[in-house]
Simulated assay, not measured.
Amino acid sequence: MNVYADDAGEKRLVGKASVPADTGPVFEVPLFSAQSVIHETYIIGTVTHFRPCAAVPVAERAVLLAAGQSPDLLPGWTPLAS
């Protein structure tokens, strides 16, 4: 699943993570072990793309990072190559 950060109100693609497509609106990553009660919470939402050559906008489900939230804990996290 693609991971987006909020950049001055715009969604900016920052990488990909191995989050299952059937995940609900919240994805929790346990911080210390599989049974940990302390989690990092990520929001799963929709990002809409307006492509100039397409007649209709395209929407995708994605991980939406909160301001200052790090994607490093997401399973299979792969940042975009710079």
Results as ranks from 00 to 15, higher is better:
S33E: 11
V19S: 03
Q69A: 09
A21S: 14
A81E: 02
F32C: 06
L80K: 08
V29Q: 01
P79R: 01
A62D: 07
L65E: 00
V47I: 07
G76E: 10
F27P: 10
G76R: 14
F27H: 09
L31R: 13
S33W: 07
L73D: 05
A54W: 02
V63C: 02
G15C: 12
V47H: 02
N2I: 07
E60Q: 08
P52V: 14
D6A: 09
V37I: 12
L31I: 13
V14R: 00
G76C: 15
A62H: 09
L80A: 07
E60G: 04
L80H: 12
P75K: 05
T78L: 05
S82R: 05
A34Q: 08
I38M: 03
V56Q: 08
V29H: 04
V58T: 10
Q35Y: 13
L74E: 06
A62L: 08
T78R: 05
P79S: 01
A62G: 13
P57N: 04
R61L: 08
P79I: 01
F27C: 08
A66N: 15
V26T: 13
F32N: 11
I43V: 08
S70N: 04
I38E: 10
S33I: 11
K16Y: 06
C53L: 14
W77E: 10
T78C: 03
L31T: 11
S18Y: 09
G45M: 07
H49T: 14
R51Q: 03
S18L: 13
P25Q: 13
I44Y: 01
W77I: 14
C53W: 13
P57V: 10
L31F: 04
Y42A: 07
A21W: 06
V63L: 07
A59E: 14
G45V: 08
L31C: 12
G9M: 01
A67E: 11
E40H: 15
F32V: 13
I43K: 03
I44A: 02
E60W: 10
A59N: 12
E28S: 15
G24V: 11
S18I: 09
T23R: 07
A59M: 11
L73M: 13
A5I: 15
V26D: 09
A81Y: 00
A62S: 12
V63G: 01
L73S: 13
V19F: 04
V37C: 07
E40M: 14
L13H: 02
L74F: 04
G9S: 05
A67P: 07
D72N: 08
V47D: 00
P25I: 09
W77N: 12
H49L: 13
E60P: 03
L80I: 15
F50G: 02
S36F: 14
A17P: 02
A81G: 04
L80V: 13
T23K: 07
L13Y: 01
P30T: 06
M1D: 11
Q35L: 15
P52C: 05
A54D: 12
A66R: 15
P30I: 08
E40T: 12
V14C: 00
E28G: 15
